[in-house]
Design a protein around this nucleic acid. Structure first.
Length: 759
DNA sequence: ATAGGGTTAG
């Protein structure tokens, strides 16, 4: 502070402003400034710069305005313009730039660069760009390459901005690039990464191939461009080429390549890169090890080597949030949810990503309610959910059948502007489909700005789950016409759809075409569905042949599909063989016992049913965990059936017809000779199969005692497609049905359902 | 100017 009675010379005071600003003592600086009789332009500029840097444009502008025109200079204008640019006010920056030129001040290289860097946020940027372009050109030659680069960068950034509709900007950028008097590394980098950002990998690659400079950043960007567009072969080839040419590779290169391997299941290759790094990098820096280890950690867990991932994690000298998030994802994706939960608790810090992983993990492991709680807790701790977090929350609604809450989330998505998010929209499709409101699923699908194979898969699955097998296959045809490549999941869905619709011929066709036309070799899941399809139609010989021709040893899913098929058709011999294999392979799997007892029940061998049940108890087999219990109160109309010719079953057929339900509902019925053989047992426990139609029929057929419990298995999502079924059953039986799922009630009355509020 | 951790479909 100024000591009273002592008058230092003005220019010392002026310099003192700078000292205060540099030490962030802005209020001292300002007080001092107010006391200087004639603050000079340097002091003013210093203060303007300081206020701009901390985002206080009002004060910066006040000082600028108080500076007489006669005193202003280019630097002072530059400071103010930079302030606007850096604080994302491109318009103000341009306005001041125009004022400056009108006032007769000459912009210099710095002015152009700074104005240009502020322009990219402006909506009508294209016009602004052209004007600036003209200004640059009119001012003649002599501009530094940095100005040209800045202009180039504006074009490129605007071309990828969603605010700008013009598609010609990249062309303009290219013209500019060609016109530039000289090009430095930044020019090349800007142009090539610009192409990559605008998804023109081809143009980027062409330019890269013609580039003499050895700019590793560009190569890195190109590799990651390929990686993000799923062209992992290209990414790897370029990585090799880079090595052959001896261009220096750094952690950016390695992390891109390893994560490419991780995301494409290329475990061996990823390991080779790991080994190569260990050989080449004698003394990696901390940054290097941190990022590379984080990627390696991901490689290992994504390839199913969670123990190795854990080992890396334990031995990392330094960990950051990325490391924690990766190991958390490892435990979540391995389904080891309890351990994931304790990791989550232990974490030194969390990001939105941490929450997202945990929420989705809970939702996928049948802990929908916990997931919703966590989503709310996240918000109360001040984390603004991103679209991925919403996706997780929507998934838990799907799992819980909390349709109303799902709709609320949908509304929030729209108001937050996330409704164009791919992952959120895909989650919505699934949620609506599982909650039985197919129309809403469809309208999300139709209004999505971008669609990928997940969207198509979700929609096809929705149709298939609602029994519209033929329409599902039609939609699949449309997907192909839209040039969306089907993946292994598409074929899983399609084979299920064929199976539901009884389309054996089509099923065979798709099964063979997946390899021949799309290069996807069927995995066990595909085989299992194919066997399911064949067995449903009684083609046991062909099913057996298929099992023998499989390129790998048949595992649980295969024998289970066979057993289920045998159950449907009462094929005792083959069924018992399948069950024996299952007992060897997965002795604790409850499904085997249930299917086998169903098989005996189907042909009326009740003694054997009891034996299987006893066997199950003796071996201490627990029924599948993660199930929920449904209490059905007040239901009458009941029977228990072993065959579809039974008059009571026929009566239900009639009901279905009266309700105008399509025959597709009946398509399942041969397969419903199931289950409910122990209805008089003291356990009051009934096992059901997984399809909504079966559940519906079961509800109709069973003479449920008041307060009986039905056990619902994990893969039967009571509130998903069963929701629909229970709705119409409430109409069929003309009584209220209350379904309690964990702590929550769904009240079905006369074909409508109201869900309670949970939170 | 480039990289590493997430999501949705069975």
């Amino acid at each position: 502070m100024i000591v009273s009675g002592f008058k230092p010379r003005d220019h010392i005071l002026n310099r003192l402003i700078d000292v205060y600003c540099k030490s962030s003592n802005f209020s001292y600086a300002h007080q001092l400034f107010d006391q200087i009789p004639k603050p000079d332009i340097v002091a003013r500029t210093t203060l303007i710069t300081a206020y701009s840097a901390i985002g206080n444009l009002t004060l910066a502008r006040k000082i600028f305005n108080e500076t007489p025109l006669s005193m202003r200079d280019t630097v002072c204008y530059n400071a103010m313009i930079t302030g606007y640019s850096r604080n994302n006010d491109g318009y103000a920056s341009i306005r001041l730039f125009c004022e400056m030129r009108q006032g007769g001040f000459r912009p210099n290289n710095f002015t152009y660069t700074t104005v240009l860097s502020g322009v990219a946020q402006i909506v009508d940027v294209e016009k602004q760009c052209q004007q600036l372009h003209c200004a640059v050109i009119k001012s003649g030659t002599g501009f530094a390459t940095s100005v040209w680069n800045a202009l180039l960068s504006v074009y490129v950034r605007c071309a990828s901005s969603p605010l700008v509709s013009s598609s010609s900007l990249m062309g303009e950028a290219r013209n500019l690039f060609n016109e530039m008097p000289e090009r430095d590394e930044l020019s090349w980098t800007t142009m090539i990464t610009g192409y990559i950002r605008n998804e023109d990998l081809h143009a980027a690659r062409e330019l890269l191939d013609g580039m003499d400079e050895r700019i590793e950043v560009v190569w890195n960007a190109m590799i990651s461009g390929y990686a993000h567009h799923n062209s992992f072969q290209e990414a790897l080839l370029l990585f090799r080429k880079m090595r052959l040419l001896g261009i220096h590779q750094d952690e950016f290169t390695y992390t891109s390549v390893i994560s490419t391997c991780a995301n494409n299941g290329l475990f061996q290759l990823g390991k080779q890169v790991h080994a190569y790094i260990l050989r080449t990098e004698a003394k990696p820096t901390v940054d290097f090890s941190l990022s590379v280890n984080n990627t390696l950690l991901t490689l290992y867990y994504k390839c199913g080597k969670l123990d190795e991932a854990q080992y890396i994690f334990n031995n990392m000298p330094v960990k950051d949030l990325v490391s924690w998030n990766a190991i958390l994802s490892g435990y979540v994706s391995a389904g080891r949810i309890q351990e994931a939960k304790s990791f989550f608790k232990e974490m030194p810090e969390r990001s939105i990503l941490t929450w997202t992983v945990m929420i989705s993990g809970l939702a996928q492991n049948g802990l929908g309610e916990e997931a919703m709680k966590l989503f709310n807790q996240m918000r109360s701790e001040g984390f603004e959910p991103c679209d991925y977090a919403f996706s997780g929350a929507i998934t838990s609604c799907a799992a819980l059948g909390a349709l109303e809450h799902g709709r609320q989330l949908h509304a929030q998505l729209i108001s937050l502007g996330f409704d164009s998010s791919l992952s959120a929209a895909n989650a919505l499709i699934t949620m609506y489909a599982r909650c039985g409101v197919f129309e809403d699923a469809n309208s999300v699908f139709l209004t999505m700005p971008y669609i990928d194979s997940v969207s198509w898969n979700a929609m096809i699955a929705a149709l298939s789950q609602h029994g519209h097998g033929v329409q599902a296959i039609d939609l699949f045809g449309k997907m192909l016409k839209a040039d969306i490549l089907p993946d292994r999941i598409t074929f899983l869905i399609i084979l299920s759809a064929c199976s539901h619709a009884g389309l054996v011929k089509e099923g065979r066709h798709y099964f063979s075409s997946m390899r021949v036309s799309y290069g996807i070799s069927p995995d066990e899941g595909h085989y299992a569905r194919m066997i399911d399809l064949l067995c449903r139609c009684g083609e046991f010989t062909e099913a057996k042949g298929l099992i023998e021709s499989m390129p790998f040893e048949p595992g649980g899913p295969i024998w289970e599909a066979l057993l289920a098929g045998c159950r449907t058709h009462g094929n005792m011999d083959l069924g018992i063989q399948a069950a024996e294999r299952l007992f060897e392979l997965v002795p604790q799997h409850d499904g085997t016992y249930i299917l086998l007892s169903n098989l005996y029940a189907a042909i009326g061998r009740w003694d054997d049913v009891a034996k299987v049940r006893k066997l199950m108890r003796d071996r201490g087999v627990k029924k599948e965990p993660g199930c929920s219990w449904i209490d059905v109160e007040n239901m009458v109309h009941v029977f228990l059936v072993g065959d579809t010719e039974h008059p009571e079953v026929q009566a239900v057929y009639k009901y279905l017809e009266q309700l105008g339900l399509e025959m597709r509902k009946l398509g399942y019925l041969p397969d419903t000779k199931f289950v409910l053989h122990d209805m008089e047992s003291e356990h009051k426990e009934y096992s059901l199969s997984t399809h909504s139609e079966k559940l519906a029929v079961a509800f109709g057929l069973m003479k449920l005692p008041l307060g009986a419990s039905i056990r619902v298995f994990k893969n039967l999502r009571i509130c998903g497609d069963c929701h629909t079924s229970i709705k119409f059953m409430s109409r069929v039986v003309g009584r209220d049905i209350i379904v309690r799922d964990a702590k929550r009630f769904h009240h079905f009355r006369n074909g409508e359902c109201s869900c309670g509020n949970y939170w």
